[in-house]
Simulated assay, not measured.
Amino acid sequence: MTEIRTPRLILRRWHDDDLAPMADINADPAVMRWTGDGSVLDLDQTAEAIERWEDEWDDEGFGLFAVELLASGELAGFTGLTVPEFLPEIMPAVSVGWRLGRQFWGQGYASEAAHATLEFALQDRGLDRVVSIAPVGDAASENVARKLGMVPERETVHPVHEVALQVQAIDLTEFQA
């Protein structure tokens, strides 16, 4: 089982008891504002998403980690790596992403978790480049990407949701782990 510990977080594979708290996160319109078309997800949709995330671990050797607070054991959301097949113009690529519950915003958790994920990508999985994909205007995600040392690479449009997207990238050979 893959697990990463940071000073405040545990990044780990998904447990059955993660479903309800992740569904609560996915049901918050403020959290989902910058995801897809902005629609919230219900319990069944969240269960399907977690199943897809776990399948990606099996298929790719990486995926989205559940992010747990070390101090309380609370599920804060996710961070991790995924193959952004929905954007064929940037393939082949691996992207880093994150989604945290609103009560966990503004505390540096996303940056801490994403930084650990980039270390994992470089040191454990041997990746040499990772991208971040966020809607144009999602200042919080752009800020996390900037803190990771990512630089803007291109703008494009989501092929399904027709949302303008900013693609940022980092060459992991230059990443300060």
Rank of each mutant, 00 (worst) to 15 (best):
M1C: 14
T2Y: 10
E3L: 10
E3F: 12
I4R: 11
R5T: 15
T6L: 07
P7N: 07
R8I: 06
I10S: 13
I10W: 10
L11Q: 01
R12Y: 09
R12M: 13
R12G: 12
R13M: 14
D16H: 14
D16N: 15
D17H: 06
D18W: 00
L19N: 01
A23P: 03
N26C: 13
P29Y: 11
P29E: 01
A30Q: 13
V31G: 04
R33C: 12
D37E: 05
G38C: 05
V40D: 01
L41C: 08
L43M: 12
L43K: 15
Q45R: 08
Q45F: 10
T46Q: 01
T46G: 04
A47S: 14
E48S: 12
A49P: 10
R52D: 10
R52Y: 06
W53V: 10
D58P: 05
D58I: 07
D58W: 00
G61C: 02
F62C: 01
F65L: 05
E68H: 02
L69M: 09
L70Y: 14
L75T: 08
A76Y: 01
G77K: 02
F78T: 04
T79F: 06
T79E: 09
G80M: 04
V83S: 04
E85A: 13
F86A: 15
L87D: 00
P88W: 07
I90T: 08
M91S: 14
V94N: 00
S95F: 13
S95W: 10
V96T: 08
V96G: 00
W98I: 15
W98G: 08
W98P: 02
G101L: 08
Q103G: 15
Q103T: 15
F104R: 03
F104G: 07
W105I: 08
G106E: 07
G108K: 01
Y109G: 01
A110G: 03
A110T: 01
A110R: 01
A110W: 00
A113P: 07
A114K: 04
H115C: 14
H115R: 13
A116Q: 01
T117R: 11
L118Y: 03
F120S: 07
F120V: 04
A121C: 03
A121W: 00
A121T: 04
L122D: 04
Q123P: 13
D124A: 11
D124H: 13
R125F: 03
G126Y: 01
R129T: 05
R129P: 05
A134S: 15
P135E: 12
V136D: 00
G137S: 06
D138K: 13
N143S: 12
A145N: 04
A145V: 03
K147H: 09
K147C: 08
L148A: 02
G149H: 04
G149C: 07
G149I: 09
M150H: 00
V151F: 10
E153Y: 09
R154K: 12
E155L: 09
T156Q: 03
T156L: 08
V157R: 13
P159S: 04
V160M: 10
V160G: 09
V160E: 15
H161A: 05
H161S: 04
E162P: 11
A164R: 12
Q166Y: 12
V167E: 00
I170W: 00
D171L: 05
T173F: 08
T173C: 14
F175Q: 02
Q176P: 11
A177C: 08
